[in-house]
Design a protein around this nucleic acid. Structure first.
Length: 881
RNA sequence: GGGCGGUUAGCUCAGUUGGUUAGAGCACUUCCCUUACAAGGAAGGGGUCCGGGGUUCGAGUCCCUGACCGCCCACCA
């Protein structure tokens, strides 16, 4: 028998096979629409996979995200849409450079020794060898992406887009270069953006330092002004001390100067409203080169900036005797020296937030440095308009859950210019050239030979590269060919842009989602519509919806982290329970607004569910084979749609068909609202609770293959059985693609109507399929059976014994019960159903809403056995106390 | 400092626009290896829906308020 399944469900045996099959057969490839487009007219459903870092390994968060996306992709595909899911990897500037640099160091070299070119070459080699890990893991997990369109953010094609975007923004006056305070990571030795700084509460100190007051001729008056600081080492770069103009304590110091201890420099006292009179001593040292607030203060008061640290946060030549010391060593020495000179007024404990590098956790040093910035306001304005409801209440981009809309808008409305330069080697090099002659900058699409301003051929290219998010922010336009949108070459862009949906995590809402909206709206807006008209904002957005998923935590709701050692490797769990069971776990726990506490107990449960389905299949196939032996076969034409029953069909058939219609209606509805949990739970309930527990048990009565049986009726019931099951497989397929693929092929006994269940149609409910009468009747029959079963337990009827029951009911229910007598007898183990006006005296009975039922049973008590059982119970309870 | 989310069974979570007796999975108890499945079947036990007030015929659900937990943004030296 070709569709004979092995006795036990073994996920590993089937999953590898189908994963490989799907990729090999290119089942999910979505080619660029041609002139003769076979899918013309089908609405597109497009998702851009958030590209994982090329250095990455698949973790639970990825698997969760991919599960949700894949369910949606498979569902839309099965609804007959033109679906496209594009995979790729991100070059991940800092992360990748760090990783390869560590390797180089372990080999006794350094990136500096190698030189830029050789090092970058080395990174490319690394990427060739190891860069595919995470995508291979995705393949194994069955993600239905189009592998033909796989990209890497540093591919030639995408690099062209990055360069074009930079040049255009520069030409539009939206990129500038200048010296500002930026967050500097001394370990990565690069600037990082505000977003890449994570703040941690830190128990530190507030050092109070006395600055001597000078008279007009520069001599100490003997008075001191005490300032408070958390970073004493920055005093080396102090250029002033600020006080509040209305601070009466210091009125007499207005216009005076102070001596800067340790540096023999005189600095002014300045007045500024920004100073808080309540904090510290009410006097604040001003170090424009090392603090953003001080920098602003310096600008306002036209003060110089003295940068006292180098790229590694060691004190530089501006730090006098402390030059060469690490910032924290310098802090220690400076505090000691101040103490020795009697200038330390006090040390107070102080809890404050300290910024760390998101990548390497090193304490960030705010530091004056020359960087490239995007003037962000014009882009942000568009990005706000794209999300905020217009006068009609329409939004070009919709957030799900909706609350993120507020978070997004709040951030976008308070945005600062974006520092896009990084002092790294791995990344898109900024297309700007410096001229040593006229000191002007040449920015160009093609590498220039000469300075555009003075013609000098001495120009050198900027060494900085771009923030990784600059290139990933362009992906929605660049993957579809931008900027090369020509009449002959715009089918992808016209068909797939804007994409339909973005599925991603909250953690990259600002990093990536916001940047895509800004850059996507900005650049696509310049691309005319295919009919030549101007592109409205609603067609400029990179995606129409953003679905923000939850975070996956461990079973104790702790964040998974390597240091805690509580990381659950999805690949390991998959090996143990199968991809389908893990996917189902994630889907069923994906409730909006709450993080997922991943618990393998749930996965065990869903492996059991998969096993249940497997065994239902075995049962069905067994009966199909038995039927074949007596010449009964199910017409394959009855499969692949949704069955509809006539009024004369048996109750259980009408009921189960109605159930699957109701289930598919509810699953479709749930998926439309991204309620993966509802969808998964509904299917689970249908399959286990209705189909297996009730329908399969009843159908055993009908599958009579004996000579005397009504072959027509048997065939009808078998057809219902197989067609409902086949529809259930399709319903389940987006959630458990492997198991359903395997069984679906078996249903068709090696001659399936398509290459994959993924290419069939998703079950859709129709009004004709819903049978309220059958539902109501079945509910009554079920409750009668449940009451009898409960009664049997109560009065201690042996499991195997069939007993007579008495039923008191109205005429309608009596007729129903009579008609379905065989069901009641089998499922409740009843030997005879007596309809009575009143349950006989002495018979144990239950009252239900519409009937009374009694079980007729003379209980013979085995005194010895009963005593033993009760003694056991007593002993157990006593032990429990 | 500003904002957001959460608090329902032992655990993890559902609970649509307010409407009968608040649900599921896991765990637990009892019985059953009934020829699809013991990764199973059947029947059970278990809840002051965080506290307090209010609206209502009716509140887990709406309003106010408090507590606790979590997250994000800002970053006064």
């Amino acid at each position: 028998m070709p569709h004979d399944l092995p006795k036990a469900y073994d996920p590993t045996a089937i999953e590898d096979h189908w994963a490989e099959y799907w990729v090999r057969e290119k089942l999910f490839a979505q080619p660029t629409p041609g002139k003769e487009d076979p899918l013309g007219g089908q609405s597109p459903f497009t998702i851009l996979l958030p590209p994982p870092n090329v250095t990455g390994n698949l973790h639970m968060g990825h698997m969760f995200e991919h599960t949700e996306s894949d369910i949606l992709m498979r569902w839309h595909r099965m609804r007959g849409e033109r679906v496209l899911w594009i995979p790729g990897t991100d070059h991940a500037g800092i992360a990748t450079q760090m990783l390869v640099e560590r390797q180089v160091v372990s080999e006794g070299s350094t990136r500096q020794k190698m030189g830029r070119e050789a090092f970058v070459e080395r990174v490319w080699k690394w990427r060739e060898h190891y860069g595919g890990t995470i995508l291979n893991q995705m393949k194994r997990l069955g993600a239905s992406v189009d592998w033909n369109r796989e990209y890497f953010t540093m591919d030639e094609r995408l690099s062209v887009a990055v360069r074009e975007a930079f040049v255009r923004l520069y030409e539009q006056g939206l990129i500038y270069r200048g010296a500002y305070i930026v967050n500097w990571c001394p370990r990565c030795q690069t600037a990082i953006s505000d977003l890449e700084v994570v703040y941690d509460e830190h128990k530190g100190h507030l050092w109070e330092i006395r600055y001597p007051v000078h008279d007009d001729s520069g001599r100490e008056t003997g008075e001191y002004l005490t300032i408070a600081t958390t970073r004493p080492e920055t005093m080396l770069g102090d250029v002033a001390v600020a006080i509040h103009p209305q601070d009466e304590r210091y009125t007499h110091l207005h216009g005076k100067k102070l001596g800067l201890p340790l540096m023999n420099r005189e600095i002014p006292i300045i007045l500024d409203d920004w100073v808080s009179r309540e904090f510290g001593t009410g006097a604040v040292k001003v170090t424009p080169a090392h603090d953003p607030n001080d920098f602003a203060l310096g600008e306002r008061h036209h003060l110089p900036s003295i940068n006292v640290m180098d790229d590694t946060a060691h004190i530089n030549e501006n730090g006098g005797q402390y030059a060469g010391l690490d910032r924290f060593a310098a802090r220690k020495e400076i505090v000691e020296e101040l103490t020795a000179q009697g200038l330390l007024a006090g040390i107070k404990d102080h809890v404050h937030n300290v910024g760390h590098c998101d990548r390497c956790k090193t304490i960030v040093e705010p530091r004056l440095s020359t960087q490239w910035f995007v003037k962000i306001q014009p882009l942000a304005d568009k990005a706000i308009a794209a999300v905020r409801p217009d006068a009609q209440g329409n939004k070009a981009i919709r957030f799900v859950p909706e609350m993120y809309e507020k978070t997004y808008l709040n951030w976008m409305e308070n945005i600062h210019d974006w520092c896009i330069s990084r002092q790294l080697w791995w990344g898109h090099r900024i297309p700007a050239w410096h001229c040593p002659v006229c000191h002007k900058i040449t920015v160009a699409r093609q590498d220039p030979a000469k300075c555009a301003h003075c013609g000098s051929d001495q120009i050198t290219q900027e060494t900085d590269v771009l923030d990784t998010w600059f290139s990933s922010g362009l992906l929605p336009v660049s993957v579809f060919g931008w900027p090369d949108i020509t009449p002959e070459n715009r089918a992808d862009f016209d068909t797939f842009y804007p994409t339909s949906l973005l599925v991603t995590g909250f953690d990259i809402l600002f990093f990536w989602v916001a940047r895509m909206i800004m850059l996507g709206c900005w650049f696509s807006n310049e691309v005319k519509m295919s009919d030549g008209s101007d592109r409205p904002l609603s067609e400029s957005v990179p995606f129409r919806e953003v679905y923000i998923h939850a975070l996956v935590r461990d079973a104790n709701r702790e964040k998974m982290s390597k240091t805690k050692g509580n990381v659950i490797d999805p690949i390991e769990i998959v090996k143990q329970y199968g991809t389908d069971a893990v996917r189902y776990t994630l889907a069923s726990m994906a409730s909006p607004g709450t993080d997922i506490a991943f618990n393998v107990a749930r996965t065990e449960g869903y492996r059991a569910f998969a096993n249940k389905i497997w065994n239902a299949a075995r049962f069905i196939f067994m009966n199909v084979d038995r039927a074949a032996e007596v010449g009964i076969a199910v017409d394959p034409a009855a499969l692949g749609t949704m069955p509809i029953m006539g009024p004369d069909a048996p109750l259980e058939a009408r009921w189960i068909v109605s159930e699957i219609h109701a289930t598919s209606a509810s699953v479709n509805h749930a998926l439309e609202n991204y309620r993966f949990d509802e969808a998964a739970n509904t299917i689970y309930q249908f399959f286990w609770g209705s189909f297996c527990d009730w329908y399969l048990e009843i159908v055993k009565l009908r599958l009579d293959f004996s000579e005397s049986a009504d072959k027509f009726a048997t065939k009808a019931e078998l057809t219902t059985l197989v067609s409902v099951f086949e529809a259930a497989l399709r319903l389940l397929s987006p959630f458990m693609p492997f198991l359903t693929e395997e069984i679906w092929h078996a249903v068709y006994d090696g001659a399936p109507p398509a290459k994959s269940i993924a290419l069939t149609r998703f079950p859709q409910a129709s009004p004709a399929g819903l049978d309220a009468v059958a539902s109501g009747e079945m509910t009554l029959v079920q409750s009668l059976i449940v009451e009898v079963r409960a009664l049997r337990k109560e009065i201690g009827v042996e499991e195997k014994a069939a007993v007579p029951i008495e039923v008191r009911a109205d005429a309608v229910l009596r007729e129903l019960a009579d008609k379905n007598r065989d069901i009641i007898e089998r499922l409740a183990r009843v030997s005879r159903v007596h309809f009575v006006e009143q349950i006989s005296a002495g018979v144990s009975k239950h009252h239900a809403a519409s009937f009374d039922v009694g079980v007729v049973y003379e209980r013979t008590i085995d005194v010895a056995a009963e005593r033993e059982r009760l003694t056991r119970d007593v002993a157990k309870y006593e032990k429990g106390l």
